[in-house]
Every structure is written in structure tokens, then in C-alpha cells.
Amino acid sequence: MAAPSSQIDQLADRIERLLVRYEELQRTNALLQQQVDSLTQERESLKSRLSAARARVDALLERLPTLKNAA
């Protein structure tokens, strides 16, 4: 059986490692959240540009003569 002080030292080491890992995970999570925010903004920008492009295409299609008028 291990001495109580040895068990306490092992537990303290494990707690230290867990704290380091927790801090690493917090930093990773913050970076991932920044990426999500950036990609969300990019997606919204692309959706807006797509909507504008669709509106331009629709406007051009309306200017084209209809098949009846062309015949």
C-alpha cells in the first residue's frame, strides 16, 4: 500500500495535469468559437451576395422578350 503522502502527491499531480488540460481546452474552445463567428459572418455575406445576384438575374430575365413576342 502506498504511503498517504505519496497518494496525496499523486492526486496533486493529477489535479495539476487536469487543470492544464482544462486551460488548453478553454483556449481551443475560444479559438473554435472565433472560427464559428468568422464563418457565420462569411456565410451571411455570401447569402447577401447570392440574393443580390439572383435579383440581378431576375431583372435581366424580365427584360428579355417573351417567347410569344419573339415568334
Rank of each mutant, 00 (worst) to 15 (best):
R54C: 00
Q41E: 10
L39I: 07
A59L: 12
D13K: 08
R49H: 14
Q7R: 15
A12K: 12
R21K: 15
A55W: 00
A59F: 00
A70Y: 11
Q33N: 14
A12R: 12
R56A: 12
A12H: 05
L32K: 04
S38L: 13
T66H: 05
R54H: 11
A2S: 15
R43N: 14
I15Y: 02
N69C: 05
L11R: 11
A12Q: 13
A70E: 10
I15T: 14
S51P: 00
T40K: 06
A52H: 05
K68R: 15
M1I: 10
L32W: 01
A71E: 10
A71Y: 04
A55I: 03
S45F: 02
E42R: 12
A2K: 15
A3E: 10
R14V: 05
Y22R: 13
D37H: 06
A53D: 08
V20Q: 11
D13L: 03
D13F: 05
Q10F: 01
A70Q: 13
P65N: 12
T40F: 06
R63W: 03
L46Y: 08
S48N: 10
L25T: 01
A2G: 10
I8E: 05
A71F: 06
E23Q: 13
Q33E: 12
S5E: 15
K68Y: 02
L25Q: 13
E42D: 15
E44Y: 03
Y22H: 14
L60Q: 07
P65H: 09
Y22E: 13
R21H: 12
I8P: 00
K47D: 04
E44T: 03
R56C: 03
A59H: 14
A30I: 07
A30P: 01
L31S: 09
Q10D: 08
S51M: 03
A2M: 15
A53P: 10
V20E: 09
D37Y: 05
R14H: 02
L18D: 08
E62F: 08
T66C: 04
L46N: 08
D58R: 11
A59W: 04
Q35V: 00
T28Q: 13
P4I: 00
E24Y: 10
L32C: 00
R21C: 04
R21P: 04
V20F: 07
E42W: 04
R27H: 10
D37E: 14
A52N: 14
A71C: 06
R56F: 01
R14E: 11
Q10L: 03
E23Y: 01
E42P: 01
T66D: 03
Q41W: 08
R14G: 07
N29L: 07
R17E: 07
L32I: 10
R27D: 10
D37M: 03
R43Y: 09
